[in-house]
Simulated scan of single mutants.
Amino acid sequence: MTEIAFTETEERAELRRQVRKLAGTYGREWFTEKARSGEKTTDLWLEIGRNGYLGINIPEEYGGGGGGIGDIAAVCEELAAQGCPLLLMVVSPAICGTIISRYGTDAQKQRWLPGIADGTGTMAFAITEPDAGTNTHNITTTARRDGDEWVLNGRKTYISGVDEADHVLVVARAEDARTGKVKPVLFVVPTDAEGFEARPIPMEIVSPELQFQVFMDDVRLAADAVVGDEDGGLVQLFAGLNPERIMAASFSTGLARFALDRAVAYAKERTVFQGPIGSHQAVAHPLAQSHIEVEMARLMTQKAAALYDAGDDLAAGEAANMAKYAAAEAACDAADRAVQTHGGNGITQEYGMAGLLVATRAGRIAPVSREMILNFVSMHSLGLPKSY
């Protein structure tokens, strides 16, 4: 049985302090200004890359820090806690970096990982499709062999940051020549490839990182575009999806901490009747409740990361789903309570609270919905009959 530490190492704590310090020099106002003006947060992205934080989970021999998912999750959380949530951290170093580190050839690792680690070679990830949604088994993007090449056709939706990425790791279905059955295969696709088109999706969320529909029409790829064993199946895919859930949990707990910190500061200084509003239990108790919920979600996230880094993929899958669920619920409640604490000021741009309602709400939907997590837990953790 894997032993899980309930306190982080001093090294991890120092990592958090340094990321917090760096992100604090930018802050929420800078982040939202970039988002509202249609600009990117490239300066922050490249700075965390130069400092070694972006690729902290990438092996040292490929330009990374040699750490684990727990380390990159800590970076993600601290950025969000300073009001600068970087969604592409979930995608580029955590999903793509992990899959390539685990299953890529040495040539692929040499080619892709250094750029992922320092931020100069951002890679997006494309799995979700309009007609498949959460049901990954129903994706219809196909890959067929044509001599020494592969040809991709299909479409993806809600693909983050395609405009900031040079390449996309695409999940497609190929036919097994021996069995005739379809299987998931992973391909690195250049975003400037002929036949590859990306269209932005208008979103209500205030973020500099955009969402896209992606269309692939006879996109031709060399044989070395395949990452890992083309017969590796779901095992390779979930090597990236479990870290995705852990990172999503950290993204949520970071946002929750930011909302809670702002609400507590406001409750300490805002006076309406006698004394600050934080002296009234109607304000104090909801904030205290959120603090408890966030800390429980952080602990579950720590457990999931430790299990994953220890190589216990089965237990990590269960814990990652639970962490993602708990963190999203805690974040939604924290954002709502932060808005309520601010009263009318909570829905102004000046105080920046209302935008968190949409940002945290996304965590209940993506990268896997709360309902599918409940399906997973009821079936795999509780042994109940499959319900979907």
Rank of each mutant, 00 (worst) to 15 (best):
E47G: 03
Q211A: 06
S290R: 04
G278A: 05
A259E: 00
E318N: 07
N375Q: 02
L152I: 13
V339R: 08
A132R: 05
R270H: 14
A319D: 03
E3I: 09
T128K: 15
A330K: 02
E329G: 01
A359C: 04
S160W: 06
Y158N: 14
D176S: 13
G363M: 14
L44W: 08
R262G: 08
K303C: 10
L234I: 09
E3G: 06
E149M: 05
G232N: 03
G355A: 08
I100P: 09
A334Y: 08
A267M: 09
G311Y: 11
E149H: 12
R199D: 14
I201A: 01
G70M: 04
R178P: 00
V235M: 05
A222G: 15
G383L: 00
A334R: 13
E318P: 00
A222I: 01
A310F: 12
A265Q: 06
N57R: 08
D312Y: 06
Y53F: 15
Q281T: 14
V185N: 02
T142P: 00
A328I: 05
I159E: 11
A248Y: 07
I4D: 03
R36S: 11
E77V: 06
A310H: 10
S101F: 11
K21L: 10
T32L: 12
Q281H: 11
A174I: 02
S250G: 15
E149Y: 01
S387N: 02
V227K: 02
R298G: 00
G195N: 10
S381P: 00
T25F: 01
A74G: 06
G97L: 10
R270G: 01
D261T: 08
A326F: 08
I99P: 12
G254W: 01
I116D: 09
E3N: 10
K156A: 03
E209W: 01
T341G: 04
H380M: 02
W30E: 06
T98R: 15
A94Q: 15
R36F: 12
D118N: 15
R144D: 11
I292F: 07
E371T: 11
H291W: 04
A74E: 14
A330Y: 01
D163V: 11
M203H: 08
A73G: 04
I48M: 09
G154V: 03
G70F: 02
A165Q: 03
Y26C: 11
V188D: 05
D148F: 03
Y26H: 12
G49E: 10
L260N: 05
L314K: 12
F31P: 02
M296A: 09
V283C: 09
D71P: 08
G65K: 09
H380E: 03
A225Y: 01
G254Q: 01
M300L: 12
V226M: 05
A117M: 13
A335E: 01
E78F: 09
